[in-house]
């Protein structure tokens, strides 16, 4: 049986301590700049905060993984290198990377620190994963959320590194690291700036008839009736019309969140080493609730007890849930 480590989001120092206290095996976090894919206002760590966080986490046996998982545009590579140098100096346990230049720099300069391949690298085949393992010494791959469990099981047999999969939280639809939708509408890039549908470009507009439209940079991403709860305008979760679809429909995906709690035993059986909980942008209480519930679930499964998942269902705040690609190929 695999270790089934629980990898938890730490958007702030307070969230990090909360996740550590709730039983995270590892936390992941980033600096307050474009070097990570959650470069949102009010989130992330200064170098001093990260130093304290590493001490706090290590004292409780929790690992700290530093996300350097964006793509530096030419001319700005030094920012990513400095972030790696700082992380290494502060004793982080692994770097989560996507860009080949960043991976190469770390492999050369900080070979003692583990490299994890970010989902942003979009390595979705054994050959792609082996490329990163053999060239950069990657020890773990975060798999894109597009494979079924039997496919994950097969991949596991064909690669020389550990597998981490997302189990809970926001459900990305596009191949990560290959999406410029946000940049197309806002001028801020997911890959280069670490932003996705940035809050600074979001507006909610209520019409006279009570309908509410959620907009991104002036583009209507979705429209809600007076009794509907207005959702955040993420481009790939909006409603649009098409020639065959005169009534607005979710062209990419409904605003559902991923919840694989019921599939945990199968994922462990498939050889997944680590379960990742999405949500560095979420509150401390959310982190406490989700991490605590998954801690119990994983411990129960590993001890051969039936796990109680009811708490996890409650955590999704009434949002629709999906098992995404993990359960069936029909998702595609």
């Amino acid at each position: 049986m695999s270790l089934a480590e629980l990898i938890c989001p730490a958007g702030t120092p307070a969230a990090l301590r909360t996740a550590v206290d709730a039983g995270a095996d590892a936390v992941y976090c980033g600096f307050q700049d474009a070097t990570n894919a959650r470069n949102f206002p009010g989130l992330n760590f200064t170098p001093d905060e990260l130093a304290d966080a590493v001490v706090y986490a290590h004292a409780k046996g929790t690992k700290v993984l530093l996300a350097l998982n964006t793509y530096p545009p030419a001319g700005k590579v030094d920012l990513w290198r400095q972030a790696a140098d700082t992380g290494a100096r502060l004793g982080v346990d692994a770097f989560i990377v996507a860009d080949m230049g960043v991976a190469d720099y770390i492999a050369q300069t900080h070979p003692q620190v583990r490299l994890h391949l970010s989902v942003q690298a979009a390595a979705s085949s054994p050959e792609a994963i082996r490329y990163y393992c053999e060239r950069f010494g990657v020890k773990r791959v975060v798999l894109p959320r597009i494979l079924t469990i039997p496919e994950i099981k097969q991949v596991r047999k064909d690669i020389p590194c550990e597998i981490e999969t997302f189990i809970f939280g926001n459900h990305g639809l596009m191949v990560e690291g290959r999406c410029s939708l946000t940049n197309y509408l806002t001028g801020q890039s997911t890959n280069m700036d670490g932003v996705c549908s940035p809050a600074s470009d979001v507006e909610y507009k209520r019409d006279a008839d009570g309908t509410m439209s959620s907009q991104l940079a002036g583009f209507t991403i979705d429209c809600f009736g007076p009794d509907e709860k207005a959702g955040y305008p993420t481009i790939c979760k909006g409603r649009y019309t098409a020639p065959h679809r005169p009534d607005a429909y979710y062209a990419f995906e409904e605003p559902v969140s991923l919840n694989l709690s019921r599939l945990l035993p199968e994922l462990i059986d498939a050889g997944v080493h680590a379960f990742k909980i999405e949500g560095r942008q979420r509150s401390k209480s959310y982190v406490r609730g989700v991490v605590t519930a998954f801690r119990h679930a994983v411990d129960d499964i590993r001890a051969g007890r039936p796990a109680d998942m009811a708490n996890l269902v409650a955590l999704t705040e009434g949002q629709k849930q999906t098992q995404g690609a993990f359960e069936t190929k029909k998702w595609r």
Partner: peptide, 30 residues
């Protein structure tokens, strides 16, 4: 796709627009 890089090895090849060659360090590596 990196799966193609894996199969191609060090034989000459072009890097396509989906390979994310964003910067000089990555280009030097490639």
């Amino acid at each position: 796709n990196a799966a193609g890089l894996y199969a191609r090895g060090d034989r000459p090849h072009r890097i396509g627009p989906f390979m994310n060659a964003y910067n000089e360090a990555t280009i030097a590596w490639m």
